[in-house]
């Protein structure tokens, strides 16, 4: 069974005075299987962030539905949505979004504390995770004391500590240098390797080439998709580049 099903999703933004309407998503349908690693690509303004916000139930679709593990998130009341998001979803953002008032450790604990877990339980989960992500040494530090790459790994830890069904990432490598990018992509592949489902929005062909499937969005629609099949990263990289070239040149509507 698919872990995530998106049916006919549509999102229209209306400006403050209701005069202008922007159709950010038009007709989006796709599904994601358990254990998949899906990259979503598209030009700036094509609706990627909008899509991710709808998947995360941070925003409500104009029409259509998002089923996560069979639950329609757009039908949940606000109170349950927050709990649902906390328990079932993990987030990684381009700009890390760590709270500067917390140590790294406390930042990672945040979703667990909100879920009412005991401190012992939290520690038990964090120790192996911190080791896996290579941040064991940083736990007592504050965000302002560590590098961008380290912050992003801490953010990944925060996203994974709830053992979410789905990890959502919005341009997670956008603010990183190439070494940190490689490290992070390696980490994503690694957690995906142990069965974590991931949906990642990205501009970077290199980032997308680590995924098992790549969705291309244009003008609010899923325009094309690529499966990795038996390709290596390099081969997939090539295919993505080709597709993007086609999209940019010959793919006029």
């Amino acid at each position: 069974m698919s872990i995530l099903e998106v049916h006919d999703l549509k999102k229209v933004y209306t400006s403050c005075f209701g005069t202008q309407k922007v159709e950010a998503l038009r007709r989006v349908s796709f599904s994601v299987e358990q254990g998949e690693y899906v990259a979503v690509m598209g030009e700036s303004g094509s609706g990627k962030t909008t899509l991710l916000n709808l998947l995360a139930a941070l925003d409500r679709p104009t029409s259509g539905s998002v089923l996560l593990d069979g639950v329609d998130t757009s039908a949940l009341p606000e109170k349950d949505v927050a709990a649902f998001r906390r328990d079932q979803l993990g987030f990684v953002f381009q700009d890390f979004n760590l709270l500067d008032t917390f140590t790294i450790e406390d930042n990672i604990y945040l979703p667990l504390v909100l879920a009412g877990k005991s401190h012992a339980e939290m520690e038990k989960r964090l120790t192996p995770l911190a080791r896996e992500l290579g941040i064991s040494e940083l736990l007592k530090k504050y965000p302002y004391e560590i590098s961008g790459g380290q912050k992003q790994r801490a953010a990944v830890a925060r996203a994974l500590i709830t053992e979410p069904k789905l990890l959502l990432a919005d341009e997670p490598t956008g603010a990183l240098d190439s070494r940190s990018t490689d490290e992070l992509l390696g980490l994503f592949a690694q957690v995906n390797g142990r069965g974590q489902t991931i949906v990642m929005v990205t501009h970077s062909v290199k980032a997308a080439s680590h995924a098992t499937r790549v969705l291309f969005i244009r003008d609010g629609e899923v325009y094309h998709q690529l499966y990795r099949g038996r390709d290596t990263n390099e081969q997939l990289y090539q295919k993505i580049s080709d597709t993007l070239t086609v999209l940019a040149t010959g793919g006029d509507r």
């Binding site: 949505v81 927050a82 709990a83 998001r85 906390r86 760590l98 909100l114």
Partner: peptide, 15 residues
Amino acid sequence: RRFDIMQKVGMTKDE
């Protein structure tokens, strides 16, 4: 800014 982050981590607006 904090408001924003906390919401994404799973706090309701009310909380």
